[in-house]
Design a protein around this nucleic acid. Structure first.
Lengths: 150, 150
DNA sequence: TGATAGTTGACTGTTTTACTCGGGTTTCTT
DNA sequence: AAGAAACCCGAGTAAAACAGTCAACTATCA
């Protein structure tokens, strides 16, 4: 789960469709205008989003993109994973064992694995619908609950 | 809060000191041997860790580094922040308002701010002591609790 | 049949990352 | 006093990733 501007732009563009696209498709140029991005760059992003099955395209005049599922059924995690290639494996990357090359397990492996799961859980719980309506604050309050329990 | 291998190496090295350093200081070459890192790189990291007040140094033979506080009083967040320069401000970076340049607020700003806080909270709750003893799994179980509540 | 708009791969400049190098300075041991 | 161990510190660098562009093509609708 990489977190770059690419992923942020993708979420932003998808949120734009969720917010402004009704029954009709939304063209990239419309998104570019509203969000201040270049259409050329959006093309690259939507190529991946379409292949990931998150949007459907319509060609020709009045064409554009529309969400493949409802906004509430598309998680932010799915969007980020679609455009940001898989995180490159660091030394510890693939195998949970053998981080040090000598068969020993590095001291911190579990920590980063836990953090990664933590981030993924957070982003999986937030949907496009949450962003458009502002409801996405919910998962945050849960961490407050957790802190109160500790 | 950037998350790079630099930060991971720093945490790994600090954990090494917490695990292997008793009363005496731990030399960089000892850490380098155990963790499979280069001393030259470790020097760079520990320069920052020392300036951040996380470790104290002792020069001369038998010198090295020791933790400035107890392992339980040093959070992973503090280590990562010490070595990874402040996150460069993206378009949205500084101001919560005006992400789009036209005075409007971008749709996703709050989301990324919330995620950032989420990550920081997680790393602030984990200490070097937790890593060495394996106790750091605690924050994870809390998220499980949160999920059960949802 | 022409305009609109998606489709696609290749390409490129910049920035960041992840290091290394070389030369210091301090302190302990003998 | 000599020498070695170890920290101190700035400069430099090769490779990768990032962010974004370009050009050419195809499909659809009016």
């Amino acid at each position: 789960m990489k977190l770059t501007t690419k992923g942020r732009y993708a979420v932003q563009a998808m949120a734009d469709i969720a917010a402004f696209g009704g029954a009709s498709a939304v063209s990239l140029s419309a998104i570019a205008d509203r969000q201040g991005l270049s259409t050329a760059y959006l093309e690259q992003l939507f190529l991946k989003l379409r292949r990931a099955g998150l949007v459907e395209s319509a060609r020709g005049p009045d064409g554009g993109y529309r969400l493949a599922r409802t906004a509430d059924a598309i998680s932010v995690a799915a969007i980020v994973e679609a455009v940001d290639e898989e995180i490159r494996t660091t030394a510890c990357g693939g195998a949970p064992i053998g981080c040090r090359g000598d068969g020993g397990r590095c001291l911190t492996h579990d920590l980063w694995a836990a953090l990664e799961r933590h981030i993924e859980t957070f982003l999986e719980d937030v949907t496009l619908g949450d962003i458009v309506t502002g409801r996405f604050a919910a998962p945050l309050s849960l961490s407050v609950v957790a802190e109160a329990l500790a």
